[in-house]
Write a protein that binds this DNA or RNA. Structure first.
Lengths: 97, 97
DNA sequence: TTGACAGGCAAGTTGACACTTGCGTATAAG
DNA sequence: CTTATACGCAAGTGTCAACTTGCCTGTCAA
């Protein structure tokens, strides 16, 4: 799949959108931290492996960048690929009152 | 599926994104017009029924509105639901040079 | 070194969805 | 009325991806 398709596929899943929300709330979390907070706040009972696969999809779409440090791997949010969406189909800015 | 999921599901398919492109290029087309132009310009060999189902998904997501006139049904693009994406994950405006 | 911790890899299963197929309905042209 | 046009509906099919399951690798502490 091309890069463009990767982006839309990435945000097409509800669990991955929750992960993006979580990283937007607190950036630079590890896999286990994300698992814990998703279970707490969103009530999602997702396994570690499932979240890991989701993070892989998000990383391939360029929405998440990773940084290794010892046995920890920190995940960082990057929203810039989302610009392609509103640039492709321009959205009128409403109510400039 | 909730409204939010409908939006992301709608733009998650490549054929539906091509339909949005087509309506952005020329608004208010009928089903048959869209079929013809998709075949010409994008080389997509999609059946009428397939495009019809795609338009139904786009309409449910609020990205397309329809208007009936006799035996014709015109499809109009509405990009405003896309605002929810960049509002949910704010995108830094780059390069303000 | 032993064990716990953080994460990775890969095969198998299941459900969702894109697409087809066939028929039905309504409008308009001849 | 007959025919063509424009579109709708619904059941069946096949494929893909989300998830599970099981095992493996690398890092750090005791």
């Amino acid at each position: 799949m091309d890069d463009e398709g990767d982006l839309f596929k990435a945000i097409g899943d509800a669990t991955r959108r929750a992960i993006l929300d979580e990283l937007a709330d607190q950036d630079g979390q590890t896999l286990f931290e994300i698992c814990g907070r998703l279970t707490m706040k969103h009530g999602l009972a997702s396994s570690r492996q499932a979240i890991s696969q989701h993070l892989g999809v998000l990383e391939q779409a360029g929405l998440v960048h990773t940084r290794r440090e010892g046995r920890y791997k920190f995940h960082h949010l990057d929203t810039s690929p989302l610009r392609a969406i509103t640039e492709r189909w321009p959205v009128d800015q409403p109510d400039p009152s």
